[in-house]
């Protein structure tokens, strides 16, 4: 391995290092990388290549540590080529963050404060100071897994999931923040509520948050 050029201290290794491409059936590949950041970088590179027409695939599904490519003509050939790709780390985004107004009034606010070891009023301050990115979507249409909080603020799921979590609940689990697009059962820690419409299939685009989007939570006054 060659030494980094002097004065290029910001340069990081290709996000593709340690990549594994696992075959999935006859027409898909599950590409596994070493971190969530690497998965987001790989996802961005896959979108770029699909956009320029050099990658033909029906679905590109990012997740926690993987990106699934479904609907490939020749997965084996792509699996051979992937390790040779130079995958740049995620560039700092210049586009505007999507702002989601939140009333920090969730029933688990005190529990989250205790897990974080901070007074309750600091939870909204810490949460709304972070810049989030949609790592991936899943669970329900429009449900985004957002990363951006430092890892010391990871929290476990609740020991007993709730049978009903109201639509618009802003919640934490593991390294993720999520917003429930509709009422559903759920085990995440609820810290607030928003009136933002996460999913509306009559709207274009239907999903407010798509993988790669930048997001900020803005404290709204309780009414």
């Amino acid at each position: 391995m060659s030494a980094l050029p002097a004065g290029d201290g910001m340069r990081t290794p290709s996000a593709g290092e340690g990549m594994r491409a696992l075959p999935v059936g006859d027409h898909a590949l599950l590409v596994e990388v070493s971190s969530g950041d690497a998965a987001q970088a790989l996802h961005a590179e896959l979108l770029r290549r699909r956009g320029e027409g050099t990658l033909s695939v029906r679905e590109i599904v990012p997740a926690a540590r993987t990106v699934l490519l479904d609907g490939l003509d020749d997965p084996a050939r792509l699996a051979e080529r992937l390790p040779t790709w130079d995958i740049p780390p995620m560039p700092p985004r210049t586009d505007e963050a999507i702002e989601i107004p939140v009333r920090y009034d969730g029933p688990d606010l005190a529990d989250v404060a205790a897990l974080w070891g901070v007074p309750e009023h600091q939870v909204p301050e810490i949460h709304s100071a972070a810049e989030f990115r949609v790592a991936f979507c899943g669970f329900a249409p429009g449900f985004a897994y957002l990363t951006g909080l430092p890892s010391r603020y990871d929290v476990p799921r609740r020991a007993t999931p709730r049978t009903t979590v109201p639509a618009g609940s802003v919640a934490l689990a593991g390294p993720y923040t999520g917003v429930y697009p509709r009422s559903s059962p759920g085990g995440w820690q609820l810290i607030g509520t928003t009136d933002a419409v996460l999913w509306d299939h009559a709207r274009v685009p239907a999903a407010l948050l798509a993988p790669g989007a930048l997001v900020r939570f803005v404290p709204a006054r309780c009414s």
């Binding site: 999935v24 059936g25 898909a28 599950l30 679905e59 599904v61 990012p62 997740a63 926690a64 540590r65 993987t66 990106v67 699934l68 479904d70 991936f136 979507c137 899943g138 669970f139 897994y145």
Partner: peptide, 29 residues
């Protein structure tokens, strides 16, 4: 296993150990 993308026809094995074959309305992750 951290959540990952799922395909049609995936044979997923939940904690009870009994295989489930994913059909058209399967979860995406």
């Amino acid at each position: 296993l951290p959540s990952e993308g799922m395909v049609l026809g995936a044979v997923q094995v939940p904690p009870d150990g009994r295989p489930v074959v994913f059909l058209a309305d399967h979860p995406t992750t």
